[in-house]
Simulated scan of single mutants.
Amino acid sequence: MPDPSVVAVFADLREEGRELDSLVGELPVAAWAGPTPAPGWSVAHQIAHLHWTDRAALLSLTDAEGFARMVDEALEAPDSFVDEGAEQGAALAPGELLERWRAGRGALDAALAAAAPDTRFPWYGPPMKAASMASARLMETWAHGQDVADALGVRRTPTARLRHVARIGVRARDYAYAVRGLPAPQGEFRVELTAPGGAQVWAYGPADAPQRVTGPALDFCLLVTQRAHRADLGLTATGPDADRWLGIAQAFAGPAGPGREPQGPSR
């Protein structure tokens, strides 16, 4: 019998894709060229990037040699391959890009469900099991979906699916230091996040840890995906190490991003 927690993350990934699809599925053609908060990226670039990374995940699950070739291509242009992939997709007609993204999501969903649950599949970082890959895809879909929502002036209702993003953000603490060439703090932090709706608290790390982060789960997820500046979020750090972490946190693989500029009270 499939592990219910694994089945749940696959379902959450499907739902995250559907929510973003509901934002872009009926957009007029001109709106696809509209700018998003990511410099140089339009709505089309955001969807094209998700399609590109979904395809990479599908290759990882189904064609190890094909994925290895994709990695080799990335290594030939490490500073530009992400933008180049987005540019190629964004050059398509919006209707064609939308259909390709939808088909890719469906193929990835089927491949995740068929994957051996304990097998680790190759990725740009450490190999991952299918459930972890689904969580990572959900995190990226949510983050790029936030860019699209911001571009369209839509305020999304946060859901319990954010627990996947929050968990990755916590687990990626030491990576945020490593990617900047900094030593990671000793010991775990305590992270307590108020879940959407306010009825639950998602807690990570030892209850008695002196270094602590508290606040809304949505704000933490916006921080670790670098979709909002810390100054615009209701997160509290206790201890100098926790405070420093909130200035560099990232949940995504790759170089440290520039983050977003503070927006002030109007956000």
Rank of each mutant, 00 (worst) to 15 (best):
A115E: 01
G106F: 03
F67G: 01
Q88D: 13
P206S: 10
T225L: 08
G125Q: 08
T62N: 02
G40E: 11
A134Y: 02
V9W: 00
A107D: 06
L23A: 08
D54N: 14
R171D: 10
P4D: 09
H164W: 08
A166D: 00
T141N: 12
A207P: 07
A48G: 03
G197H: 11
C221Q: 00
H144I: 07
V24I: 15
R267W: 14
L246V: 05
A131C: 01
M133Q: 07
H144W: 03
R69Q: 14
A209Q: 02
L75M: 15
G125E: 09
P183G: 02
T225P: 03
A237P: 01
D83I: 04
V9Q: 00
A228I: 09
L112Y: 01
P2V: 14
G40Q: 12
Q250N: 12
D12R: 04
A184L: 01
V7L: 14
D63Q: 03
R260D: 05
A111N: 07
D118E: 14
A256D: 15
M139S: 06
P127R: 06
P39E: 14
P126E: 05
I168L: 04
A110I: 11
H49K: 01
R173E: 04
A207E: 15
E99D: 14
L218I: 07
R156E: 13
H49G: 00
I168S: 01
L223P: 05
S80M: 08
W41A: 03
R180T: 11
F189P: 01
A251Q: 01
T214A: 14
H45S: 02
P127H: 01
V224E: 02
A134E: 02
S42T: 15
G254V: 04
T157I: 12
G104W: 06
L108V: 08
L218H: 05
V6Q: 15
I168D: 01
H45T: 04
L233W: 00
A130P: 00
H229A: 15
V201F: 09
M133I: 12
A131P: 03
D12M: 09
W32F: 09
A103I: 08
R14G: 12
H229F: 09
A209M: 04
L75N: 15
S42R: 02
A57Y: 12
R105G: 06
A195Q: 08
M128T: 04
L61A: 06
E84L: 11
A151I: 11
L23C: 05
V82E: 00
L92R: 14
Q211N: 07
R137K: 03
E84P: 06
I168K: 00
V82H: 00
G89Q: 08
P37A: 13
A256T: 11
A199V: 11
S42V: 08
E19Y: 13
P78V: 10
A56V: 07
D150F: 13
D243I: 08
G104E: 06
L58W: 14
G205F: 01
D219Q: 03
P78K: 06
T141Q: 08
A33H: 15
R14D: 15
G95N: 05
R161G: 11
D243P: 12
G34L: 14
L246S: 11
A217Q: 02
